[in-house]
Amino acid sequence: MTCRELYLLARRRLGGAGVDSPGADAAALAQRFLGLDRAGLALHGEEAPPPQREAAFLQAVEERAARRPLQYILGEWEFMGLPLAVGEGVLCPREDTAVLVEELARRLGERPRPRGLDLCAGTGAVALGLRTLLPQAEVLCLELSDRAFPYLEENLRRHGKGLAAARKGDVLSPALAGEFTPGSLDFIASNPPYIETGELPGLQPEVRQEPALALDGGADGLVFYRAIARLWAPLVKPGGLVAVEIGESQGPAVERLFQQAGLTAVETAQDWAGLDRVVSGLR
């Protein structure tokens, strides 16, 4: 088969399997496994790929048709211009998380060398995204999952430039929070698990293949926000920032938790769809 025929086959197969964006996904798989982007398909679409490339492409199409996340098939995903290693066991970086990074950078302002924590760090997207906007920032990433941790270490090695480090740890642990000096940090950032436990079975097939550890926020979705407000916010120095990504309906509840924890100037920022996405406040 020619590259064009393979691409068209993939688009039909993925569309029939219910994939939301079959054309875009087929193009991404063609670039990864056939070595041809859209321009390359236009120029070389009538050529036949080597047999091994065709076989790898067709295998990837079947995996995607089975609703394996595209990010896992590709092995990396771009976030704020950074190619991040991803795979089974780690949450896929999402465009909405850039809102958290942008709010952190905006509210941290002109601090010469802000130091802080990225809680529930996953791939390290938040920490590394922040460093693209504030290259002087120093970030320690905390992540509990044994499966996610190698991706975090790889991404920090590739992009951290020595100012982002990783540590294993449970964000819900008072003992871990107690190892840090109160009032010693400029910021706390987190994209924590925030989906209500009862909602997990109804998620898209792709999302259900991501780790429940990175999704399940407890019965009301607020378990990690309570811990951040109670255990981690006190680590921030006066005038320092606490900022978290939230689910679209959680803004009022997280605002209250932050206010009850003594944070001031609490704000909710929206994503590009106009949905509540980030709550932040000052110590």
Results as ranks from 00 to 15, higher is better:
E110W: 02
G122C: 07
A229V: 13
L14E: 02
F180G: 06
P205E: 05
R12G: 07
L29I: 04
Y194C: 07
T2E: 07
L128H: 05
A229P: 12
A125Y: 02
R277M: 05
K161S: 13
L176W: 09
A10P: 10
Q31G: 06
R12I: 05
E5A: 14
G251E: 02
G169S: 05
E179C: 13
P114L: 00
A17L: 05
L200Q: 08
Y194E: 05
G240V: 04
E199H: 11
R167C: 06
C3A: 15
R64N: 10
L119S: 09
G18T: 09
L36Y: 10
G198N: 03
A253W: 08
G281M: 10
V254W: 08
L257Q: 00
R230K: 15
A105H: 05
R115G: 04
E54R: 14
K161T: 04
F180L: 14
Y7S: 06
P150F: 13
R11W: 10
V86W: 02
E63G: 12
I73P: 11
Y151K: 02
L215R: 05
E54L: 02
L140C: 11
E47D: 15
V19D: 00
L119F: 07
L9F: 14
L142E: 01
A233S: 13
V171W: 02
L200V: 04
V86T: 02
T268F: 00
I246C: 06
L14V: 13
A60M: 06
T2K: 07
A39W: 00
G109Q: 03
G129A: 04
E76K: 09
D220Y: 02
G129C: 05
R157T: 12
E62K: 14
M80E: 07
G15T: 14
F57P: 09
L58Y: 07
A175M: 01
G274C: 06
L231S: 10
L156W: 14
A229H: 08
V19C: 12
F180I: 08
A17S: 13
Q209T: 02
A229M: 07
A261K: 12
A265T: 01
L108V: 04
N191V: 08
D220M: 13
G239M: 11
L43G: 10
R94M: 03
P238I: 01
Q260S: 11
G18D: 04
E54G: 12
E154Y: 00
V266M: 00
G122K: 01
T123W: 08
Q52F: 05
D220S: 11
P211Y: 05
L140W: 10
L134P: 12
S145M: 01
C141S: 15
R158T: 03
P205A: 04
H44Q: 10
P150Y: 08
E76W: 07
F180Y: 15
V99R: 03
